[in-house]
Amino acid sequence: MRIAIDAMGGDHAPQAAVDGAIAAAEEWPDTTIVLVGDTSVLEPLLQGKKLANLELRHASEMIEADDEPVKAVRRKKDASMVVAGRMVKEQEVGAMISAGNTGALMTTGLLVVGRIKGIERPALAPMLPTVDGEGILALDLGANMDATAEHLVQYAIMGSLYRSKVHGVAEPRVGLLNVGTEAMKGNELTKAAFPLLEQAPIRFIGNVESRDVLRKPCDVIVCDGFAGNIMLKSMEGAASVIFSVLKDQFMRTWYTKLAAAAVKKGLGQFRKKMDYTEHGAAPLLGINGLVLKSHGSSNGVAFKNAVRQARVALKNDLVRSISAEISNGSE
């Protein structure tokens, strides 16, 4: 098993990628980790550490956070992200991980790796936090702003397979993000998608309102990228404001400071539970190879966790399972 890491992408690159690669290589000696990036920069960060299952692949360029995705991928042929994508395409590695430019990674998936036959639109599928700490897989949260009812059905099938193959969830419950739970609620897209989802080879439970997502009414929730990204950003903003207000309130008097000291540990655990970045990398489902997007602020632990996800997905033949299911559905 071989997994490539785009070492030059992310807020803490390349140190975080190197740290994560070393930790993963030490943890799983049966997996070869390939760090892709400027070897003159990467080699000193290894500090002389020699591991048989840790390799470097030179890439002379890198895609910056503010680069225009399509232009960057097409013009920077030797960028670390693009090189890693080609390695997946050519089956030199089974998966790639990047914390870099999200749009560029999506473009790399589409233009370099390519789509699974029958998939019209790939979907970005991160895990959103839930109060039970297990999370809910949501797709699409930004790969495509627009979608058709048929796209949502494909998202549902791919998401259901991911939850089953990677997370071991038996018969994942799939919900459709909507403004009400009644079958005929919503806009033209959700109204058209509802009956198609009822007929799809999934366990469809109906419409789910965004206010209920944190309570985990289902294991997979599907939506178009526009609505999904708004939902994600709303959750991020609400969490940020809530914790900011709590901090201000706890710092008002010495009484409240004492109370803060008493609940500090519990609040810290709750904040970690409700942080979607703690739930690992987000797969770009529908690509003909395993492509994982880590959060831009990923540290070494996050990269190691992404490798763990990739290993499970590869062992369970996720991409081939999606391809087979989509092919069966199109016959």
Score class of each variant (00 low, 15 high):
A125T: 12
G37W: 09
L110P: 03
V93L: 12
A65M: 15
Q91P: 04
E61I: 00
E61H: 04
E90Y: 04
V113F: 06
K77S: 04
A99C: 09
I97P: 12
D132V: 04
T108C: 13
A72F: 11
R57L: 15
S80K: 05
M127G: 03
P69A: 08
V34N: 08
T102R: 05
S40Q: 11
G85R: 06
A104M: 06
T102A: 03
I63W: 01
K50M: 15
I97T: 02
V82K: 02
R74M: 15
R86G: 00
Q47L: 13
R57W: 11
T102E: 09
G85N: 05
D132T: 08
L124I: 14
A84P: 02
Q47N: 15
S80F: 02
L105G: 04
G109I: 12
G114C: 08
G94N: 08
E120P: 06
G103I: 11
K76H: 06
L110A: 10
Q47A: 15
E90T: 11
V70I: 12
G37T: 02
K89W: 04
E92A: 10
D38Y: 02
I116D: 03
A104W: 05
L45M: 12
E92W: 07
E134K: 15
L110C: 06
V34Q: 10
I119L: 00
L51T: 07
I63R: 01
N101K: 00
E134S: 13
E68R: 10
M87D: 00
G85W: 01
A79W: 00
L45R: 14
D78H: 05
D66S: 11
P44A: 06
A99K: 02
K71E: 15
D78A: 08
L124W: 12
A95M: 10
E43D: 14
K76S: 04
T107P: 01
